[in-house]
Amino acid sequence: MSGHKPDKTDEQWRKRLSPEQYAVCRCSATEPAFSGKWYRHKEQGTYICVACKAPLFVSETKYDSGSGWPSFFQPVTRSAISLVQDDSHGMHRTEVRCAACQSHLGHVFPDGPKPTGLRYCINSLALDFVPMK
C-alpha cells in the first residue's frame, strides 16, 4: 500500500460501489445486524476495504461478538485505519475509517477480548475478502 489517498469524485464512488456499499462507505450508513456477508464467515485470509482494496483486518483477529456484525480485536496494522470521534445519533462513539480512502467501516468499542480489549464492529458491506493461499 502506497499511502496515496485516492482522489475520487462522488460520481466515481457511485460507479465503483453498489448503492448499499456507497451508503455505508461514503455516507456512514449501517447495515442491519445479522445481515452481512462476512458476519459468520470463518475462512482464513485478509479482509480488505471494498472501496480501495487496502488490507484492514486478518481472520486471526476476527471473533464472534454476538453483536450481529463482523468483529475484530485489532486491525492488520494501526496505520490501516483512522479513528474519528462520532457524536451522531445522541451517542459518543469512535468511528473507524479506512486510512487509505477514508471510507466508513464501522465503530470501535472498549468491550472486546484480550489482548486489546477492543471490538472493531465493522459493516460487511465495507469489506471484501482475500483468502489465504
Rank of each mutant, 00 (worst) to 15 (best):
S2K: 06
S2M: 06
H4A: 14
H4Q: 13
H4Y: 03
K5P: 03
D7V: 08
D10N: 12
W13P: 06
R14N: 00
K15A: 10
R16S: 14
R16P: 02
C27I: 00
S28Q: 10
E31T: 09
P32L: 08
A33S: 11
S35Y: 14
G36C: 03
K37R: 15
Y39C: 07
R40I: 06
R40M: 06
H41M: 12
Q44Y: 04
Q44W: 01
G45N: 13
K53F: 05
A54P: 05
A54E: 15
P55M: 11
L56T: 12
L56C: 04
V58P: 03
T61K: 11
T61S: 12
K62N: 02
Y63I: 04
D64V: 08
Q74E: 13
V76R: 03
S79F: 05
I81T: 11
L83H: 06
Q85A: 14
D86W: 11
D86K: 12
S88N: 12
H89N: 07
G90Q: 08
M91Y: 05
H92K: 15
R93P: 00
C98W: 10
A99C: 03
A100F: 01
C101W: 11
C101F: 12
C101Y: 10
Q102P: 07
Q102K: 15
Q102W: 13
Q102H: 15
S103D: 08
H104N: 07
G106S: 12
F109N: 02
P110C: 10
D111N: 13
G112L: 00
P113Q: 03
K114V: 10
P115Y: 02
G117C: 05
G117P: 14
G117W: 10
L118T: 08
L118A: 10
Y120T: 00
N123Q: 01
A126V: 09
L127R: 08
D128I: 07
D128S: 14
F129Q: 05
V130I: 15
K133P: 15
